[in-house]
């Protein structure tokens, strides 16, 4: 199944690299890089000028079964209201859909969260730790109001995620701008010793 204009030999490598890039963006706590991530989504052009061609339809984003209004809203929420994450890709497959100019990617990954009690900016705000609960489940991970936890992340156990991306086939021509037409991200399993509640 060859797609004209796309380098079929490089497709698996490019697909995997792109998906890894998306996961790395999700893990990036640096707010100043948010724009780099935003530019990957269809219809999101933060530098649009008056008179420019009509923007592409906005990307569809469905996170844990909830639709986000747009990429900017989702990324802002992710950056400001979700603690630091660490994703690891475990499986990936993709199909180039003939005649549509699009690619469907299906990825599974595992993700863990910083359960130290700090948000991405290091503020002690995201995890409310009731008095006396730190370390109460018998493991030795630093928690909440432990002073050591303020110095570094305290990764919790892994969650499982399933992620689907519909990409523009321009991604195979090294054009990353606005290539994400849709992103669905669903947490499919949850460890019971995590502090995160879905």
């Amino acid at each position: 199944m060859n797609y004209s204009g796309a380098n079929t030999r490089q497709q698996p490598h490019i697909t995997e690299t792109f998906v890894q890039k998306v996961l790395a963006h999700l893990d990036d706590a640096d707010e100043t890089k948010l724009n780099n991530f935003l530019q990957l989504f269809s219809g999101s052009n933060p530098n649009a000028v008056v008179g420019a061609p009509a923007p592409a339809p906005p990307a569809r984003i469905v996170f844990n079964g909830q639709r986000s209004t747009d990429a900017m809203a989702f990324l802002t929420l992710w950056n400001q209201q979700v603690v630091q994450t660490q994703h690891t890709l475990t499986a990936l497959d993709y199909h180039v859909i003939p005649g549509s100019g699009t690619v469907v990617c299906n990825a599974t990954a595992k993700v863990r969260f910083d359960e130290s009690g700090r948000d991405k900016r290091g503020q002690d705000a995201s995890v409310a730790t009731p008095p006396g609960s730190a370390g109460s489940n018998g493991n030795n991970r630093s928690r909440g109001n432990n002073n050591n936890a303020r110095q570094r992340q305290s990764w919790g156990p892994y969650f499982g995620i399933s992620m689907q991306l519909v990409l523009d086939e321009r991604v195979y021509r090294n054009d990353m701008h606005g290539v994400i037409h849709s992103l669905t991200y669903t947490m499919v399993y949850k460890p019971e010793d995590s502090l995160i509640d879905l």
Binding site: N64, G65, L77, Q81, V127, N137, D197
Partner: peptide
């Protein structure tokens, strides 16, 4: 246990319409 609640509550189903 201490809980961090995700800002987007997990939903079993989503349909565009």
């Amino acid at each position: 246990d201490a809980i961090f609640t995700f800002p987007l509550k997990l939903q079993q189903f989503h349909f565009d319409n």
